[in-house]
Design a protein around this nucleic acid. Structure first.
Length: 527
RNA sequence: GGCCCCGUCGUCUAGCCAGGUUAGGACACGGGCCUUUCAAGCCCGUAACACGGGUUCAAAUCCCGUCGGGGUCACCA
């Protein structure tokens, strides 16, 4: 039975690298009919855990990475919060002490620090002298009389080599001599991460520890702990870390300003800013940051596209495949195809994948994706009225692949604005209506034709315009641009005839009238 | 600094373990087609094995070294 776990600490956000790890754990568990456990590593948390945890749970849910045991769903190994499992850890510490694998240490922090400095000065590796190690009650009493507080340290081997097999990195060796006597219990009696992690992994029956490379060098001390306790070794798989775009540095939430200098990264943010501005949300880096998964949910990315992209962060199936649905990921993913080199975050690739996933969505699915955005800005009520939905559907269908993320619907605000409120792009207005001689005349004439047209559907309107153009002996381009600006206020948009049909006759005529009067006003001398 | 890891087109990568490929793909870029704008689509193209030795008939692939980049060394997780 395979059991994997994702063990985030409640930091208030879900980092892209973290989700990648969660995804691999989840995929591996699901592929093997195993279980995926979510455990909260909050051994050092004094903040509000519930609040800091919420974005993490939300992100995982949004992506559909469901957990079999953990917060919310419970399970046979409750609680799933390390802060509430301290008695278990303390029992393990007592056991380690009893077996001679750990000791009470009465050194003051500054004394250990002094030893460390001395080692650095002499250019030799630091190894704690164990000078304040207390192995007997007499020692303890003596140090305590000096007013010292004990921590518990691991009594690590000082020779030999640890060898273990990593599912991704193969045979890994670490000389024991490089290991420190790590602290496992603080002076206040609470236990530290490594101890907690080993105890929980054992108690929860974790068979495969899949985590990021940063933990590779932590593995010896963890193996030392578990073997001292008589636990079996789980299988280890250390994933390459997720690196910054265009570099091999670890991706960090705090370096947003620096990443913005990268063009691709900046493009990703800029796209998002337009949407967020229309939504009236904050763009402060703590809330709006591509390093955090919430960014993508806010903008209306597809969870499946994100999953696809994340899977490619360190994994590849072969020399060409890169589009994967969730089911395909489940079918093809394997740990032995995971890279060893750091995986760079590539905004362009993410965007490309998003667009490909959008490409396979049905009209109804696209409307579903876009609906919350339309509701947020009030184009569509809650619950939606039928005619609002009809118009939204028509806009989505006409815009089609121009909608790359859900929030892109917001750029079609001109379909949800009354004629009197329409804003005209001054440059477009000038170039298409004011400057070309006779443009307004033509538009006015065509408007008269529109006014008597009963059938206001796209194909009919197209025929109508072509007929008009033929009669006048002009080219399509001589009028269509003016028409577009007149009815949408912009020089770009989707198909002209779809645009007219969606707006409807009354609205189109009202907009043309208004455009003509705005153009006339602009054109007066002195302006 | 010690220990560990990693260096393939502009970018993200496949290929390396079991040497022989016109070094593959995607994105970006350039050109063309299509075209009412914008998207999209289709066709074509430019473009890479960090460097130096060695082994070999043959090296991106194996070995050694150099250089470069990174991770990790907490009473953080």
């Amino acid at each position: 039975m395979v059991r994997t776990r994702f063990a985030p600490s409640p930091t208030g956000y879900l980092h892209i690298g973290g989700v990648r790890t969660a995804l691999f754990c989840w995929l591996f568990a699901r592929q093997h009919d195993g279980q995926f456990i979510l455990r909260i590593d909050d051994t050092d948390q004094d903040r509000n855990v519930a609040e800091a945890l919420e974005p993490i749970l939300r992100g995982l849910r949004w992506l559909g990475l469901d957990w079999d045991e953990g917060p919310d769903v419970g399970g046979p190994h409750e609680p799933y919060f390390q802060s509430r499992r301290q008695p278990l850890y303390q029992a393990a510490v007592r056991e380690l002490l009893a077996r001679g694998a750990a000791y009470y240490d009465y050194a003051r922090p500054e004394e250990v620090e002094a030893e460390r400095q001395a080692a650095v000065a002499e250019k030799r590796p630091f190894v704690y002298s164990r000078r304040w190690m207390a192995e007997t009650e007499a020692d303890r009493a003596r140090f305590e009389r000096e007013g010292r507080q004990p921590v518990v340290r691991l009594k690590m081997p000082r020779q030999g080599t640890l060898v273990f097999t990593d599912l991704i990195r193969g045979r890994v060796e670490f000389p024991w001599a490089n290991e420190q006597d790590h602290i496992i219990q603080r002076a206040d009696g609470t236990c530290l991460y490594h101890l907690a992690s080993v105890v929980d992994d054992y108690e929860m029956g974790i068979t495969h520890v899949i985590r990021a490379e940063e933990h590779l060098s932590n593995t010896p001390r963890q193996i030392f702990i578990l073997e001292a306790l008589g636990y079996p070794r789980p299988q280890y798989a250390h994933l390459p870390f997720v690196a910054e775009p265009g570099s091999k540095n670890k991706l960090s939430k705090r370096k947003l300003a620096q990443y913005l200098k990268n063009k691709d990264f900046a493009d990703l943010v800029r796209r998002g800013e337009e949407i967020v501005a229309r939504l009236g949300l904050s763009t402060e880096p703590d809330k709006f940051n591509p390093v955090m998964i919430a960014f993508y949910e806010t903008l209306g990315y597809l969870p499946e596209a994100i999953l696809n992209y994340l899977a490619l962060l360190g994994w590849a199936l072969d020399d060409s495949a890169e589009f994967f649905t969730r089911d395909e990921l489940l079918r093809y993913f394997s740990l032995d195809r995971v890279n060893r080199a750091p995986a760079s975050f590539d905004p362009k690739r993410l965007q490309a994948l998003q667009e490909r996933h959008m490409g396979r969505l049905s009209l109804e699915k696209k409307v579903e994706l876009v609906l919350p955005f339309a509701q947020h800005v009030g184009w569509v009520g809650t619950p939606p009225r039928e005619e609002e939905l009809t118009r939204l559907r028509a806009v989505v269908e006409a815009a089609w692949d121009r909608i790359k993320v859900g929030g892109d619907i917001l750029q079609y605000d001109d379909f949800f604005t009354a004629a009197e409120q329409l804003n005209y792009d001054p440059v477009a207005l000038r170039k298409r209506l004011i400057e070309p001689p006779g443009a307004c005349q033509l538009l006015q004439e065509f408007a008269r034709r529109l006014a008597v047209e009963e059938d206001f559907r796209a194909p009919t309107l197209e025929a109508l315009l072509h007929q008009f153009v033929d009669e006048k002996g002009i080219k399509l381009g001589d009028i269509i641009h003016a028409l577009r600006v007149a009815v949408t206020g912009k020089s770009i948009g989707f198909g002209m005839f779809d645009t007219l049909a969606i707006l409807g006759k009354e609205e189109v005529l009202a907009r043309i009238r208004r455009a003509l009067s705005v153009a006339a006003a602009e054109d007066r001398p002195g302006n």
